[in-house]
Computed example of a mutant assay.
Amino acid sequence: MGIDLEGKIALVTGSSGGIGRACALMLAKAGAKVAVNYLGSKAQAEEAAQEIRQAGGEAAVFQADVTVPEQIDAMLRGIQKQLGGTVDLLVNNAGHMVQRVPNIELTEEHYSRVMDVNMKSTAFVSKAVLPGMRDKGYGRIVNMSSVAAHNGGGPGASIYAASKAAILSYTKGLAKEAAGSGITVNCVSPGFIGNTAFHAAFTPDAARQATVKSIPLGREGTPEDVAGAVLFLLSDLASYLTGETIEVNGGMFMR
């Protein structure tokens, strides 16, 4: 049984690179029209959209800071105009650790930036797409957590870990609220995923090698590994799953 998303409109936040880009490409291959969202990497976002079009899919690029509700609303108006409808499938991928900050050095500015880009963006993009999904009696939302939500993260990442743990709980709460409208809400929790800007910026090579050695499957993950789980949760194969989290970590954390 193949996965067919033909006729569905998908929004993937933060999809100019890494996991978000892999999700956008995979959803397009399954037939969805894809809204590629970016904050500052316009060229990369255009490249992702062009790759989708060259493969015969449909994509449009939208710049928006998804921590700002007014920009989210403007993006959704653009999606409706350019892709011909409201969002059916949402992947709340946008997120960042910003930088490693020990708690003894924590500032209110850092706390707010991390919580906003991870938790606030997830909540307010979800809020913005819910009316359209409710009107159709159908919708799929996938949020992006992290193994850090379970283990507290690495040095200086406690606020990031807390924001990702909040997403786990939010997913369950929203799943309960939305279930009566035919909307499922689930979560993906990646472990150590290579080929991403996150680890290029925050993980020294020695730490990377040590982490890979601790993974039972013996390798770091790829953005496509995460995108496969996202695709499953957005498909009809997962129509009876809601409020759940899939751990994509090669066995480094098992529940």
Rank of each mutant, 00 (worst) to 15 (best):
A35N: 10
G20I: 12
A22N: 00
E46D: 14
V34L: 11
K42C: 00
E51S: 15
A24K: 00
L27R: 04
A24E: 03
Q50K: 14
L25H: 02
S16Y: 07
A22Y: 06
G17R: 14
Q44V: 04
A48H: 07
I19H: 01
G31E: 04
A35K: 09
A43W: 02
L39E: 06
R21A: 15
V36R: 07
V36C: 06
G18P: 00
R21P: 01
K29H: 09
L39D: 04
I19D: 04
S41V: 02
N37G: 14
G18M: 02
S16H: 08
Q44F: 08
A28N: 04
S41C: 03
A22F: 07
A45R: 07
A35M: 10
A35V: 08
V34K: 10
L25R: 10
K42S: 05
E46Q: 12
L27E: 03
A24V: 02
Y38P: 06
M26N: 09
E46V: 14
K42P: 00
E46P: 07
G18H: 02
A30T: 07
Q44T: 12
L25G: 03
A30G: 08
A30S: 13
A43M: 08
V36Q: 05
G31L: 05
V34I: 09
A43L: 11
C23W: 00
A45H: 08
A32N: 05
K29W: 01
A28W: 01
E46R: 06
A24G: 10
Q50Y: 01
Q44Y: 05
A35W: 10
Y38H: 14
A30E: 09
L39C: 11
A30K: 08
A30I: 07
V34G: 06
E51I: 14
L25S: 02
V36F: 04
A48Q: 08
E46A: 11
C23F: 00
E51V: 14
S16G: 15
G17L: 15
L27D: 02
A24M: 02
G40T: 11
A49K: 04
S16L: 09
G31N: 06
G40V: 11
A24Y: 05
R21D: 01
E51D: 13
V34C: 12
A43D: 15
S41W: 07
K29L: 09
G40S: 11
G40R: 12
S41Q: 13
L25P: 00
S41M: 08
K42G: 01
L25Q: 09
K42N: 00
